[in-house]
Design a protein around this nucleic acid. Structure first.
Length: 302
DNA sequence: GTTCTCT
DNA sequence: AGAGAACAACGCTCA
DNA sequence: TGAGCG
């Protein structure tokens, strides 16, 4: 049992040499080291937001699982946040991750991917992120880049900034930072409207049809995660795939590069990338928007 | 990864 | 004491 | 109500 000292916390790390990923082998200790290295750029995207944790205690070759509730056996310094369940009455306590020590605790729990809510725990019905997931059929990343650029342009017509990220699996996310004025139902309605307009502009390549057997080889513009208590993969989160690919925030000029892929950046390469270019999403919250003007403009088009 | 049950 | 099993999510849409 | 989906 290894133990890492982070500030005044002593965080245990069991089975530090256990391989969690293949190609190349990446151990629990490697994962903890990765989290420590990226903490500075990753934590601002997690702070205050309830987390769904995707855990793989036996490595990514075995079935993992989602964990949403804060377990009673978590160290008392790992913060929880009590949020209402959708529907009525009861609440659930979820984990929040405000600091590096908690990030290493998550590594010890074999958390490969963290999925933050799109809202903060103190205002759970008012998202501070709008996310469109670009989910291609197969591995057609040219269509992903096309959709991302087309979506950026459409959001620009609506007066909204947009930020791109590889997901580390097959597609990309395009994110709009929000101040939290609109509630979750308004945000979802707006996101659906934007996706419908974009799909209508490019009906041969894009669709909003959720069912796989009706997509007809088109890329899915998925806005379903803009709902209460749903979440999106965090910036800089590794994904449970060979090579330990990472969801990586980008600058828009990188989306023009025909060599870009969803799995371009990994646990091995992201620290060097951050040294070179910093965090392309480092200032997103300063550009948070209210949706009212954009929503009015969108309605006027339809 | 942790907890519980069965030998 | 050790092996093995159980357990660890959820909201929305369409049929 | 449940299967499908992410």
């Amino acid at each position: 049992m290894a133990e890492l000292t982070i500030g005044r916390r002593h965080v245990p790390l069991g089975n530090p040499g256990k391989a969690l990923f293949t190609d190349p082998t990446t151990t629990k200790s490697d994962l903890a080291g990765y989290y420590r290295t990226v903490a500075t750029v990753m934590l601002p995207h997690l702070r205050e937001r309830p987390l769904a944790l995707q855990r793989f205690p036996d490595g990514i070759g075995s079935a993992g699982f989602f964990q949403k509730r804060r377990p009673d056996n978590a160290p008392d310094w790992v913060p929880g946040a009590r949020v209402p369940r959708e529907g009525e009455g009861d609440t659930v306590e979820m984990i929040c991750c405000p600091d590096e020590a908690t990030l290493v605790y998550l590594a010890d729990q074999a958390v490969v991917t963290v999925h933050p809510w799109l809202s903060r725990a103190d205002r759970p019905r008012h998202p501070v992120r709008l996310v469109v997931d670009l989910d291609p059929p197969g591995d057609d990343f040219d269509t992903v880049r096309f959709a991302a650029l087309a979506l950026r342009d459409l959001l620009g017509e609506l007066g909204l900034p947009a930020y791109p990220m590889t997901t580390g699996s097959r597609g990309m996310h395009v994110m709009v930072p929000l101040v939290g004025r609109q509630d979750v139902d308004e945000v979802r309605r707006f996101a659906r409207g934007v996706a419908d307009v974009l799909a209508a502009r490019h009906p041969d390549r894009l669709t909003t049809e959720m069912r796989k057997d009706r997509r007809g080889g088109r890329l899915l513009l998925d806005v379903m995660r803009n709902a209460y208590a749903l979440h999106a993969v965090a910036p800089y989160a590794p994904r449970p795939l060979p090579g330990a690919p990472v969801a990586t925030p980008l600058d828009w000029d990188e989306v023009d590069d025909a060599d870009l892929t969803a799995r371009r950046y990994t646990v091995r390469s992201v620290p060097g990338r951050i040294d070179r270019v910093g965090d392309p999403w480092g200032r997103v919250d300063r550009h948070a928007r209210i949706l009212s003007t954009a929503a009015r403009r969108l309605r006027s088009w339809r």
